[in-house]
Design a protein around this nucleic acid. Structure first.
Lengths: 256, 256
DNA sequence: AATGTAGTTTCATTATATGAAATAAAATAT
DNA sequence: ATATTTTATTTCATATAATGAAACTACATT
């Protein structure tokens, strides 16, 4: 049974999240169709918890800073993030030393409910940056890290993730058939790393390696950059080894 | 009027945030005293929005990843953060160049509802790090950044912030009287920066400068470190100038 | 000073949450 | 394999809480 009032309240939060500059009571009422007094009841319940805040001058309502502290709680509860963070920086620094600047982003991702979730990121120092962020989600078949995270699941588990939906094409080389995906995962399992060659976004390549705990893959570490700095040669000669090594070091620090 | 059901629902989220490893339905019921079916109704409303997730094996409930994406929305809506971020890195890099390693943390903070909220941070590369994080809050009188943020408010506004509560002592030198605070703010206004000399935490010093937009102070940038690397001499000879300059550069990029 | 605009509060009515109990599912013991 | 225990989930009559029109209040604009 779904609670009507709570559901409405969460719709209000959604509305506020789509209007981060803030909304007046009347604006909300017009947008969502609930009477302004009902919305007011909801907002005044959210306010003391700081899920919602109100600009003292304009009276507009905004998302509250509670979300920031709850984010911290979630991130801190993910063990692999704490252990891996130092190694993400080491990788960033190594690329920086070698090339003067690190023009690639370093990511850490996990799989939850069939989605890849980025849980840590060190951004590029220069050049274009993919619009990923901590908390960003995508489909696993379209990302190097995602493919790594799928690679040692059973076919059944993978089919469950993709049941009822197709493999959405994101970039020009996205794997769009489940058979192709199984073949690719077989290859990744053997070689111990995954490459995304413009599969998620045109002009972007990525190389990822698995992080294990208790024998299972629990996270993926990856290097993401433009096809101009991340040539296939550079991936094969330099980057894949770096990311595999760092991921291995993280694995050996993880509790089994 | 406070909505009873929504309020209970938010209490459930609070409970989950205090138990980030997850809770079973029964555990929650015992802890909070609501019947398990009521809690279940609430949780099943939260689930599709991903405010709550459920471990498929253990059936335990956890905070969902929605909080991460809403955090991003909030952070992205703060203009000063976008502009300042690059300068935080510049400051970090400059200290790194000069001293080999940057043993200080760089913070960006704003004032909301009488509280200092840290909205960006670059952590120390080495040594101890204060347990601040993006979303962390504290009282303004006890932090260098907080004092900067108070420094150009009217006495009335400051009294409103501290009405009904005393100036809580945090560190060994925390300002605990409102008169002392007014004197300190006068000084900060004149000199254009603030120092926290073990006022928030023993062994920690901090130096902060104001970032302005439209003539008003909208944020504070600060350098935080241990008393061993951040001697008063170093603050006066090197750090205060650096942070004031960077903060000034950020101000000149801000929309008026 | 009057008018308009938007936020807030009230309260009788009506719809919704409640929670005890039944059921289902999973884990553990026999 | 089967019984037992434990815990999650669902149901539904009843008690309770949300609803929302209207009144009120605060503030801005004319």
């Amino acid at each position: 049974m779904k609670l009507t009032t709570l559901d409405k309240s969460l719709q209000i939060l959604d509305l506020l999240s789509k209007n981060p500059q803030g909304l007046s009571l009347l604006e909300m009422s017009n947008m969502i169709g609930f009477p302004k007094s009902s919305i007011h009841h909801i907002l005044s319940t959210f306010l003391p918890y700081d899920y919602v805040s109100q600009n003292a001058e304009t009276k507009k309502y905004l998302l509250g800073f509670k979300f920031l502290s709850l984010s911290r709680v979630i991130l801190d509860s993910i063990d692999v993030r704490k252990i891996a963070n130092k190694y993400l920086f080491e990788l960033h620094d190594k690329l920086r030393e070698r090339h003067g600047e690190c023009k690639e982003a370093i990511h850490l991702a996990i799989l939850r409910n069939g989605k890849v979730i980025y849980i840590d990121k060190i951004d590029t120092q220069a050049g274009l940056s993919l619009a990923t962020y901590i908390g960003f989600r995508t489909d696993p078949h379209a990302a190097a890290g995602g493919k790594v995270l799928l690679s040692e699941l059973s076919p059944k588990e993978i089919l469950t993730i993709y049941q009822g939906r197709s493999l959405k094409p994101y970039g020009k080389n996205t794997i769009t058939s489940i058979d192709e995906l199984f073949k690719e995962l077989e290859k990744i399992k053997k070689q111990g790393y995954a490459i995304d060659n413009e599969e998620y976004y045109e002009g972007v390549r990525c190389v990822a390696a698995p992080i294990r705990a208790g024998g299972k893959i629990v996270a993926a570490m990856s290097i993401t950059g433009s096809i101009f700095t991340m040539t296939m040669e550079r991936i094969n000669n330099e980057l894949k080894q770096l990311v595999v090594d760092k991921a291995h070091k993280i694995s050996s620090e993880m509790q089994w």
